[in-house]
Every structure is written in structure tokens, then in C-alpha cells.
Amino acid sequence: MTWTPDAPRYRLLDGPSPLHRLPRFSAALDPDGGIDVWVKREDLLPLGLGGNKLRNLEFHVGAALAAGADTLVTSGRRWSNHCRLTAAAGAKAGLAVHLVLTGPPGAVPGANERLDGLLGAGVHVTASAERSERAALVERIASDLRRSGGRPYVIEVGGSDPIGAIGQVLAGIELATQVAELGLDPGMVILPTATGGTQAGLLVGMATADLRASVVGVAVAHPAAEVRRGVDRLVADLAATVGVPRASIGTVTLVDPARPTGYGRADPSAESATALLARTEGIFVDPIYTAKALAWLIEEASAGRVRGTVVFWHAGGLPGLFETLER
């Protein structure tokens, strides 16, 4: 089964992201060939140095243009891929962009913040790390724009609401098409999970296309128990939108990293995972997000708990390699 959304959409993708086999990486995990890892290269999507959030933004930008908006307003951490890609999407669509980044401000702007400015976004950094301050500043900027005659469209953190996550449903259907064409039968899809939109969308999209692999989210920002509620709600919303019975969709499986260090903090196991993938396949992952899920895969595969054909979801975020992280 395929599905075509009827929501407004502004095209940012130029085709499917590649699905690549990782033979040397797989052999490093198990020289006896017990695991065959493939990677879904969302990092190679075409705008703003790539990343999975472009899929969400196709539908948020589409909704903004349909509503007559002239400005996108969103927020996130200072290394936010969603914020950088919102700036890129706004530039592509001819929309102004304002980004509210969690503070306090650093002595020198980080890599993502500099890219945000290069893309033309207005960048606002809060005085503290409080989420409430960030949310209040988003509302103040949107209100100021309205008072001056602007028409802002506000996107929630991560863009992972039922509008944006439609893009991830299509990603799940896309993956099902690719594995069928390659004759693969993956038993598991492993991805980093923060706001939960990608995991929820993949679950619904894969069920729609009858791909019955389990979807394991490694909770890289908040504890798995905390994230689960949001993913469950989003799966129910997306299932209703697509018209798939909730009972036909796989279980929401979330795990915590083997050695949780906190979001945006350096993680030695993630650094080792980054080096292993780079030195076996020439592929980089960011240390904040994707590498922590990769570290979980390495530990589980090395212990023999993950076997067979596996798809690893490379969410992008490569500018994170150049961010300064707390230790």
C-alpha cells in the first residue's frame, strides 16, 4: 500500500535519500558475518548540509505558504539541526526566518549558529537555558511581527507535530520501497530519537507499506520513559491521518543510551562510534545526536544482541562535529 498526503507541501527534497550497505563496518562488529548493517543517508538530503528534518519542513513550509505567512519562527538548542534546516528551507521558499536558540550565549557562536546567520535567519539567543524563557521569546517575536504587519508561522521545537511528521511517514514508505527493490528483509531499523516525530512517522509509514521490521529509537535527549508518551500520541494521530488501524502498527520501542551523558554533552562511546564508522566507511556522524544511537548499535551488536540485516537511520547534523560540547 502507498499513500499520498493531501496536506500542503513545498518540495525541498530532490528524491529519496540513499540506502547504502556498510560491509567493513559490519565486519568490524562481527567478523563472522552475523550482522549486515545498511545506512539510510538522510545526511545527504539536498539543503543546508542535509538532515531528516527537511522532510518535516516540506509540510510546515507548505502549511505556512497556504496560510499566507511571510515568516517562519521556531526554536531549539544552539546546535539544532531543525533550526538550521528551517533557515535553509525559508531561504529556498522566500520566507523570512527567526530562530530562538537556548542560551546562555557562548563567547563565540557555534558552527550551527554561524550557519543560521549565513542562511539569513534572525538569530535570538536566550539569557538562560530555561525552556520557559525560550517559549516566551518565541511568542514575543511572533507578536512583534504581527503588530508590525507581518504574518508569522510558528513551528514547534523539532517540527515534530502531526503536520511535520507526515514527512516521516513518507520516509517509512520510501524505505519499504528501497528494501523491496534490493531484496532486503531487515529485522530492525535503529535511529536516534529526541522529539519523536521521525520514529512515529517511520512506524506508521512502514506499517502502511507492510514493512514489518521493528523500529528502535535510542533516546538521545530525554529519558526513554519520558519520550514514549509523545511518540505514542503522535503514532495515534498519524495512523488516523493515513487511515491505518493502530493495531496494525508496530510497538513503540525506546531505549536509553548505554552510557547516558545528557543532550549536548560529550560521550566517549559516541566519539568511538564516530571514529569507527569514519575509519571503516568514510562516513561522518555528529556527536550530539546520531553518534549516540550508533554507539548503542555497536554495543548491542558486539554483544550478539542485534543480528541479521539492520538499517541505521543517519539523521544528519554534521555541523555538530564542529560544536564545543561540555564534558
Rank of each mutant, 00 (worst) to 15 (best):
G120Q: 02
V169A: 11
P109I: 12
R134D: 05
S160V: 00
G150C: 02
L145I: 11
V154M: 02
E113M: 14
V125D: 04
G94E: 09
L137Y: 04
V138S: 10
A165L: 07
L137F: 09
R140D: 15
R147M: 00
A176H: 02
G167P: 13
S160Q: 13
I173Y: 05
A107I: 04
S160D: 11
D144I: 01
T102E: 15
G122A: 13
G103H: 06
A111C: 13
A136L: 14
A107T: 12
G150S: 00
L101T: 13
A171C: 15
G117V: 04
G159I: 01
I141N: 10
R151E: 13
T177R: 12
I163C: 05
G164F: 06
R114V: 13
V169R: 06
D161F: 02
R134P: 08
A176W: 07
E113P: 08
G94W: 07
A121Y: 01
I155C: 00
R134N: 03
G167R: 10
E133M: 06
A96W: 01
R114P: 03
Q168N: 14
V179F: 04
L115E: 10
L99A: 15
L170K: 12
V108D: 15
V125P: 01
V138H: 08
L119H: 05
P105R: 08
R151G: 07
V123H: 03
E139F: 13
D161P: 01
A135W: 11
S132P: 00
E156G: 10
G158N: 11
R146T: 06
G106Y: 08
G94V: 04
L119N: 03
T102C: 14
T102H: 06
V138I: 14
A96L: 08
N112W: 06
G167D: 14
S128G: 12
A107Y: 01
V169N: 12
A171V: 13
